[in-house]
């Protein structure tokens, strides 16, 4: 299987997860979007040498995984697949910043190593929070959240249209690539000579499709406004979710809970 088929399956997998019906899935999508953004900003706001204080943040994804019934494997897979760029940038820290930063027992730990591990932790946290948002919220509900958050309508409509046709177009691209690779079996990727015509033909077909969709819209009275009827009331549970997590994030940001816990456990030595 090539990259495109992998990604396609992944997209479908998330779509299926989002179609579940759990307490998390029932939350108002706007509340989930805001909480996710808050979480990510909070994680990013820790100082770059923070390590220990970050750990309580894992409670948030753990909560969503548990109550939202999301398999951990799919999150881990994505984390690993998106890792390279972050690794590429972060891996230099241990080499560039070798001054001793702290001691664990009698081991000296360099600042670069700490900031590198901290980058990995932040990365894991923010990636899983983002993925958990789409694994527990359908694209359609995210569209609703976006328009509630005053994202311009034209973008919301475009994102919804786009998500709808990604499925159609990926299948079309896959068929084309398959037909191409059957006739060019020893090639990795699409060769230089056929780029233009392969993508160009797909593009022409796409333009034709847009034309037909437009006609179908016209036939049903389209006048330039795409109207979507939705009502999703915010309930007390939604507010509670937002408030509790906000308080929690702020608390974790201000108080180094694991450090405190460890001291309690070790009886104040260290």
């Amino acid at each position: 299987m090539n990259k495109i088929e992998h990604r396609w399956l992944e997209l479908r997998h998330f779509d299926e997860l989002a179609a579940q019906d759990s307490l998390i899935h029932q939350l108002h999508p706007g509340v989930k979007v805001v909480t996710t953004l808050l979480f990510i900003v909070m994680v990013a706001s820790f100082s770059k040498y923070e390590l220990v204080g970050l750990f309580p943040m894992f409670i948030y994804p753990a909560f969503l995984i548990g109550l939202g019934n999301i398999p951990v494997a799919i999150l881990l897979k994505r984390v690993l697949l998106t890792l390279p760029f972050v690794l590429f940038i972060g891996i230099f820290n241990p080499f560039l910043d070798q001054a001793t930063y702290a001691y664990i027992g009698s081991f000296a730990v360099s600042g670069g190593l700490i900031s590198f591990i901290s980058i990995l932790l932040r990365f894991t946290l923010s990636v899983s929070a983002t993925l958990l948002l789409v694994a527990t919220t359908s694209m359609d509900a995210i569209g609703l959240a976006l328009s509630k958050l005053r994202v311009p309508r034209i973008i919301v409509i475009q994102i919804l249209f786009m998500y709808r046709y990604i499925y159609v177009l990926i299948e079309e691209v896959m068929k084309t690539i398959r037909a191409h690779s059957l006739r060019a079996p020893y090639r990795n990727g699409v060769g230089f000579k056929v780029w233009g015509s392969l993508v160009g033909l797909l593009l022409l077909r796409t333009l034709d499709r847009a034309q037909r969709i437009y006609q179908a819209m016209m036939c049903r009275g389209f006048d330039g406004q795409v109207r979507i009827m939705r009502s999703w009331k915010i309930r007390t549970g939604d507010i509670a979710f937002l408030v509790v997590w906000t308080v929690f994030f702020v608390l974790v940001r201000l108080v180094n809970i694991p450090h405190w816990l460890g001291r309690m456990l070790l009886g104040g030595f260290s």
Partner: peptide
């Protein structure tokens, strides 16, 4: 930093 033995123990616990 909170990075110390206590910190490590606490992190694992968390």
């Amino acid at each position: 930093s909170g990075l110390s033995t206590a910190g490590v123990v606490g992190s694992i616990l968390t």
